[in-house]
Design a protein around this nucleic acid. Structure first.
Length: 289
DNA sequence: CACTTGACCTGTCCGC
DNA sequence: TGCGGACAGGTCAAGT
């Protein structure tokens, strides 16, 4: 599911609800969803207070005042939904909501706080996880040692972007965009959307892309990631924000999940194919290989 | 090494 | 209505 804009949207929601909350209890019903929860839970989680909520790549970090952090990956279908006095099931328009009463059959971990509010980790497909690490060790996790730069960082330039891709000259640009060690945070939706924006066919080999094309891709990717954050992300099926509500980006999408519809630039019918092992949406006229 | 494919899971949709 | 197969926003390990 969640790519950079969705995870960032969840982070912003959690950052408004969680700081100061004191963990009263933690409940698990699927071991693999919280693989290193042992006696550490008692020592570092129960009674701990949340200090802040961060994001790196597609990973959320919830820092505690016990020098430990919850590290959370939502993978394809993970959700983190907060329920408290001011954020209750039923608030807002019903069509915004994708989750009802919690816990439900997809709930894998439940955190309860001292003020009776709760945080639910739901994950239909069970690929996602919550782990507990000493805060200082988080940068040493294999994933964080290898992951590429944040594409939206102010100091990340067109030149940096081109440099990062030089490590994957013989692979296609879509696979390279999805490779988290090149740059962080891009998944299937925003790969397709940004390639359409830059008029690049997803199967084009990286080494065959000009400097101008790569610069255009950088511009389109940053534009689309920022727009998606503004729209609260994409809810293709499971994704919801920290209040359990959908994001609206897909109503603005130009190609993703729009096969059979017309290209907004040239009216050609958008097609769905397979590139880098993933469903891929392109305009056959705008994006020639 | 660089690159591709399968595995991890559940649920839904589509064709027969 | 049932059943099999393909597919779904991600990442690893294992294969070539």
């Amino acid at each position: 599911m969640p790519e950079l804009p969705e995870v960032e949207t969840v982070r912003r929601g959690l950052a408004s609800f969680l700081p100061g909350k004191v963990i009263k209890s933690v409940d698990f019903n699927w071991d693999k969803s919280f693989p290193n929860a042992t006696q550490d839970v008692q020592a570092y989680l129960i009674g701990a207070s949340i200090t802040r909520v961060r994001r790196r790549a597609k990973v959320l970090l919830i820092d505690l005042n016990t020098e430990h952090s919850l590290v959370i990956h939502l993978k394809m279908t993970g959700q983190l939904v907060f329920r408290g006095k001011n954020v209750a099931f039923g608030a807002g328009h019903p069509s915004d909501s994708l989750v009802g009463a919690l816990p439900d059959k997809s709930t894998r971990v439940t955190f309860e706080f001292a003020d009776e509010s709760q945080l639910f980790f739901n994950d239909q497909r069970k690929f996602g996880w919550v782990k507990l690490y000493p805060t200082l060790e988080v940068p040493n996790i294999d994933f964080f040692k290898k992951v590429g730069p944040e594409p939206l960082n102010a100091d990340f330039t067109q030149k940096d972007f081109r440099q990062r891709f030089k490590r994957r000259p013989n692979t296609n640009i879509k696979a390279a965009l999805l490779d988290q060690t090149v740059i962080a945070g891009v998944g299937n939706i925003y790969a397709d959307e940004s390639l359409w924006g830059a008029k690049i066919h997803p199967a084009t080999l990286v080494k065959n892309l000009s400097t101008a094309k790569m610069n255009k891709l950088y511009d389109e990717l940053r534009y689309i990631l920022n727009l998606a954050i503004e729209k609260g992300g994409s809810s293709d099926r499971n994704y919801v924000n920290a209040e359990g509500k959908r994001g609206s980006y897909l109503s603005f999408a130009r190609v993703f999940r729009r096969q059979g519809q017309t290209c907004p630039r040239c009216d050609t019918i958008i097609v769905k194919t397979r590139v880098a092992g993933r469903g891929t949406h392109t305009c056959p006229k705008c994006q020639r290989q």
